[in-house]
Design a protein around this nucleic acid. Sequence first.
DNA 1: CCTACCGATCGGTAGG
DNA 2: CCTACCGATCGGTAGG
Lengths: 208, 208
Amino acid sequence: MRTVTPPGDPGAETTGGYLKGRIRRKDIIAAARAVYAEAGYHGSSLREIAKRAGITHAGLLYYFPTKEALLAAVLQRRDAEDAARQHLDSSPGLDVLKSLIALAAHNVRHPGIVDLYVRLAAEAVGPDHPAHTYFERHYREARELTARSFRVLAARGDLRPGVDPELAALGFIALMDGLQVQWLTMPDEVDLVGALEAHLQSLLTVPL
Amino acid sequence: MRTVTPPGDPGAETTGGYLKGRIRRKDIIAAARAVYAEAGYHGSSLREIAKRAGITHAGLLYYFPTKEALLAAVLQRRDAEDAARQHLDSSPGLDVLKSLIALAAHNVRHPGIVDLYVRLAAEAVGPDHPAHTYFERHYREARELTARSFRVLAARGDLRPGVDPELAALGFIALMDGLQVQWLTMPDEVDLVGALEAHLQSLLTVPL
DNA sequence: CCTACCGATCGGTAGG
DNA sequence: CCTACCGATCGGTAGG
């Protein structure tokens, strides 16, 4: 065997290169997501990730030259999937808020995604963490899209008087995150979607 | 020197034993809190904690026989401090909710406590984590105390109609947690206390 | 992509 | 409480 394979070009990720390399990269990223979800980023070893992808850890480093490069690829893939799902770049308004709740409902059926997100977000609060900038951007974008949506609702008179769109947006995103932690800790006692709907309804003058 | 020192009796923690040993335990626990806050539990090493406490890691293990025993002591100490502050065991009602917001305001001035809590909670979502049971209990108790408070408000007519006390309680606790993560990630952009007050006000028919 | 290796670090123990 | 050690594991590199 030992056929021609692509170099460990950072930035190429899952696109570009030869077919075999693209498949390997996809497998490695999938394995990394699973292990990060179970053990966080710092708690994960390249050897464990590589084993699940069916190669050695030195082989993994052929495709992703450092541990951080692999994390970057995982985060990039998450963004690509979110964008592909297209729920979030519709025009601001009630639909955006509903699609955020739909995203939460989707996540409840895919606990691994929630695990990955919750663990990485908590690890990345420190400014030195390699995912810190990613989460700053992620939170800022989510908050601004949500704030715009609340402003649209306010202009229509659908927002309960006295509700500040910026604070409501901050709270809505925070509520999603906090609910995920409690839900992961005790899935049977936490109605994630119900709590989100109840919260949103309490901010509106119109039924959901 | 080498004077008589207490054995590594698990359960004794900071009470009991000789004075010197109690002081050492306190120092070690304080160092552990700081390191956990920076690196999480799994990311912390006994050597780093011991160094900050001014001993070797083998010396630390004389007082706390395993890494897990030290974590248990840290969690136990947190509960003791919360109980000593007595904010939380007043009778259910608006005062409890206000004191939770006051606790958040207190935490904003002590980021290390928030860091410790956020990191450990995220790590402990897995049922195998040594702090998992602690956080299950913690969440359940916080949620129940809050739910009781909302029920008291509802009976008085101070709760906005349509608000379910159980879901509101779940949401209030989750909001606190989620806000803490965003606040740690970008302190300048997040008004933690303002968002909590705005949220609580939106659930009430009376001014805060 | 693998084998084989490196230096560093880990939690824990032996023995005083 | 320390010195000295153990086996295990880590990310990364050399060299094919």
